[in-house]
């Protein structure tokens, strides 16, 4: 995925507060990456009143109708291996020795779902869980190469999509708190230090520096370290003074 596109997508998703809106945002980007459809399903979502499922798919109306009429939700091999699991599932890895499964994939392809697919399971801290899927019509060899390049970005997209879905449920967003180590790593990044240099300064390995940077990225729902630094600065979570953050008295408003 091109870095600029990825940044724009994640940035747009972070402002989405409806599931359909989030899906439209992804659809405007995905053709350029060789992706065909996007689907999201989540159970146990904290909607007001009682938990309920959320669903948003870009599949053809014919497939959606056929899926419902055939009762496919009960035998869908992707739902069966993905929902409740934790490993991302490449549809090509699914056992197709059962003729019913072969028929399912055949019909799906006929009704324009896509020749290949990748489904990413999601688990949240409120006990909700979901499955985020992208499909592609690229041939198998191209798809394998594409998947290798895209999978990490898609993991991030899946969880940022899920964050938008949570916002659509009216789930209260907790204020972001950056632990001191994460804030220090971001501040040194802003000052142009490499991971190795930051590790030396803080007395930890560059591996652990990257651990803190990834943890902070996920906290702020950003696309990469530069994006994280920018947002942390904008939110006042770090500042560029040379004094440690916690020693600076807060300005009175």
């Amino acid at each position: 995925m091109h870095a600029d596109d990825f940044f724009d997508l994640i940035d747009s998703l972070s402002r989405a507060d409806r599931v359909d809106g989030a899906s439209e945002i992804i659809q405007t980007f995905m053709r350029a990456w060789g992706l065909h459809n996007v689907a999201y399903a989540a159970l146990n979502m904290p909607t007001p009143g009682a938990p309920r499922p959320l669903l948003s798919v870009s599949y053809s109306a014919e497939w959606q109708k056929h899926y419902a009429q055939s009762g496919y939700v009960d035998l869908d091999p992707i739902v069966r291996s993905g929902l409740g699991g934790i490993l991302p599932i490449d549809w090509a890895e699914i056992d197709r020795s059962d003729p019913i499964v072969r028929k399912f994939f055949g019909e799906a392809q006929e009704l324009d779902v896509g020749a290949n697919g990748l489904s990413i399971p999601i688990r949240g801290r409120l006990g909700e869980f979901g499955l985020f899927t992208v499909t592609s019509n690229e041939k198998d060899a191209e798809w394998r190469g594409m998947k290798k390049d895209l999978i990490r970005d898609l993991m991030v997209v899946a969880f940022n999509f899920h964050a938008a879905a949570l916002r659509s449920c009216g789930a209260p967003e907790e204020p972001v708190h950056l632990p001191l180590r994460e804030a220090s790593c971001l501040r040194w990044k802003a000052l142009g230090k490499t991971d190795e240099e930051i590790g030396k300064i803080l007395g930890i390995s560059s591996h652990t520096v990257r651990f803190h940077l990834e943890s902070a990225r996920a906290r702020l729902n950003t696309a990469n370290t530069t994006h994280t630094v920018a947002r942390a600065l904008a939110l006042g979570l770090i500042n560029m003074s040379y004094e440690p953050n916690h020693l600076i008295p807060r300005k009175r408003r």
């Binding site: 999601i122 949240g124 969880f159 632990p179 001191l180 180590r181 943890s215 906290r219």
Partner: peptide, 23 residues
Amino acid sequence: TGFNMLNDTFPQLLPDSARVQSP
């Protein structure tokens, strides 16, 4: 991102007791 031992049983081991939750 979901429930796990470090965040939900041993948060005292986390820097500033802040949950680590990344996909």
